[in-house]
Design a protein around this nucleic acid. Structure first.
Lengths: 199, 199
DNA sequence: GACAAATTAGGACGGCTGTCCTAATTGCTG
DNA sequence: CAGCAATTAGGACAGCCGTCCTAATTTGTC
């Protein structure tokens, strides 16, 4: 019954640590988030951490793995009986879905990747993998729409959304965000007419 | 002769502290840069700091003020006997001028603003002022080109460049950077033909 | 050269960091 | 209920953080 024990008991505390660490890393940054912060948010003792994770970097790994999984899940949902163009639209509209958090803290993926790059952290590549997940998925959709420069289009769209999150959080301006999302939708529409222009 | 003393002696050490702090904040982040780091880079004692700055936030203020001044200076240079469109092009091409640093650390303005937003730091607005400097200057150029949505165009261009810096530093991909700069130049060209489309 | 001011070096300080250890508690198994 | 494993709490630890103080040194002026 050893197996059952591992499966049944781990999820509770470990899962809660990952969850709280995830949001704290997002809202306050990885470096600025201390063990004490996470412990307080979860409601456990500091010393207890090392039974679940062997270091802070280990928690970061878990958080990134968690985000990768959630992203895969979200992309999967967008594929449900929707044509490629509608799928790309779903991607664009997370800017509106997560509007409040984006205007306060920017993009979870972009800001983490940027911070880890400055820290010369080994996990930087792992964090970039989340971007790669989006990129490859978007490229697949563009390819389905008949574009042969699908990867470049995917990267272009990723960059556009990243820029929007940076400026939206800088000025906390929801009108800017809305108008840029509209512009992005217009770009996607125009793309159908002339399949090789990036605009 | 008190006046002369203040003018002549201050610039040396204080200026060097600001300079080193500026690059360290850029390359490693504000939070991750310690007093010891700056002291070592400048080559002075830690305790000596408080004769020039009264706190770390005070150094941050000085760094931001310094960046504002340098930005104003740069914008001024771009105005030298060049038509508005060429001035905007100068802005776009800093992405190529600073290519190496951007691919390693992203945009100095964007990354600092993002970090300060997460830290809930009072200096966030001051950092955003650097963006505003660019925005207003760009809007002025777009207005000179006959666009009535000049401010929106300026914000759009700022966002585009920010997104490019994020993705370029994520993947360290100079081909992406080059092609996006080309796309941005194409966008600027197309803008001349139909003055009210954002693309 | 004497004197005062500006500048510097070096260390003390309380507090927080990530890490680790140990003892107590809980929960499951037989 | 006994016994064992999993989990927890709490604190010790070395080290670094930003801050502050004091004493020594340098600098410029009369």
């Amino acid at each position: 019954m050893q197996f059952k024990k591992v499966i049944m008991t781990q999820p509770k505390t470990r899962e809660r640590i990952e969850e709280k660490a995830d949001t704290l890393f997002y809202e306050n940054g990885f470096e600025a988030t201390s063990f004490a912060d996470i412990a307080e948010a979860v409601g456990i003792s500091r010393g207890n951490f090392y039974h679940h994770f062997k270091s802070k970097d280990d928690i970061l790994d878990a958080v990134i793995r968690r985000r990768l999984a959630k992203t895969r899940c979200m992309l999967g949902e967008w594929e449900a009986d929707a044509p490629p163009k509608a799928r790309i639209l779903s991607f664009i509209r997370i800017l509106l879905t997560n509007q409040t958090k984006i205007m306060a803290f920017g993009c979870p993926v972009g800001t983490l990747t940027t911070e880890l790059a400055k820290l010369d952290h080994v996990a930087h590549e792992r964090a970039a993998d989340i971007f790669t997940l989006f990129r490859d998925w978007l490229a697949e959709q563009f390819r389905a729409l008949g574009h042969d420069d699908a990867k470049a289009l995917a990267l272009h769209l990723l960059g556009r959304t990243q820029g929007i999150t940076v400026m939206a959080s800088t000025y906390h301006d929801e009108d800017y965000l809305a108008s840029e999302v509209a512009a992005l939708e217009g770009w996607l529409d125009a793309l159908s007419d002339k399949p090789s222009l990036k605009g």
